[in-house]
């Protein structure tokens, strides 16, 4: 497995997309935190305010993670990959792991970078990490990004096309999950159980929901696991 991880690490970092994705995700989240902190008025700046750009970073990370697998299909390097290691499940798990670790690192740097930036600009006692919720909002972001990346790799493996995978990964959390709220009576319940909505309750304790923060994260991870298993099964079965 260490061999496979090393292979996938080389593969990921010898293309350009993870680099610019990382830069973009960090630049936008931290930059947005700075914008919010600079313009803030009326009440103290809180830890939560520093993380307003978190979803932007998450979207960039999912695009990056999906591209890590769809570009392999696009350039047919997936064939070279499966030729070198015919155990497809092992290869794809290694790829998922490498991408998830990168996503986690981006998440942690983005979150702490945003927090520190906001604190430097307008730091009061409310900016200290005190409660569990404070810590989840900042340190928890890496976990959310990592699981988000797993979902993206799974979707990318299932769809195989960059445009399709990216469209699904962006339209789903940004539009579909919100549109379901329009449905009367059940809409709000469905919305609450949508994966990206659910996980927002892990990092943002102000959002009420049916289950607690850690259960929400577990639910998000569960969705990721189901998608990943489906993707692995499909990749094992079809022609490369």
């Amino acid at each position: 497995m260490t061999t496979l991880l090393a292979t996938e690490r080389i593969k990921l970092f010898t293309t350009r997309s993870p680099w610019w994705s990382t830069l973009l995700a960090l630049g936008m989240t931290i930059g947005f935190a700075a914008l919010v902190a600079l313009n803030h008025s009326g009440g103290p700046l809180t830890v939560r305010h520093s993380q307003f750009g978190a979803q932007f970073g998450l979207m960039i990370v999912t695009v990056m993670a999906a591209l890590a697998i769809t570009t392999e299909y696009r350039f047919a390097t997936i064939r070279a990959t499966f030729q070198a290691v015919p155990h497809r499940t092992a290869v794809l798990l290694a790829k998922t792991a490498v991408v998830a670790v990168l996503a986690a690192v981006i998440g942690e740097v983005a979150a702490f970078g945003s927090w520190i930036t906001a604190r430097v600009i307008d730091g009061g006692p409310e900016m200290n990490l005190v409660t569990g919720g404070d810590w989840r909002a900042v340190a928890g972001l890496g976990l959310v990004y990592a699981v988000g990346a797993v979902i993206a790799v799974a979707v990318g493996t299932l769809i195989r096309q960059s445009a399709g995978a990216i469209s699904v990964l962006l339209i789903w959390p940004l539009l579909v999950e919100n549109l379901v709220q329009l449905i009367p009576r059940v809409g709000e319940d469905i919305h609450n159980w949508m994966p990206f909505t659910a996980v927002s309750r892990f990092t943002d304790s102000t959002v009420p929901g049916p289950i607690g923060p850690w259960a929400s994260l577990a639910y998000f991870a569960g969705v990721a696991a189901v998608l990943l298993v489906a993707a692995l099964a499909v990749a094992e079965k079809r022609d490369a």
Partner: peptide
């Protein structure tokens, strides 16, 4: 197929990851 390479990866990097896999 000689075109089964990532266009933005260098020749050496392409061989590096293949070598790492085995």
């Amino acid at each position: 197929d000689a075109k089964w390479v990532h266009p933005n990866r260098s020749a050496r990097d392409h061989l590096r990851w293949l070598a790492a896999a085995s």
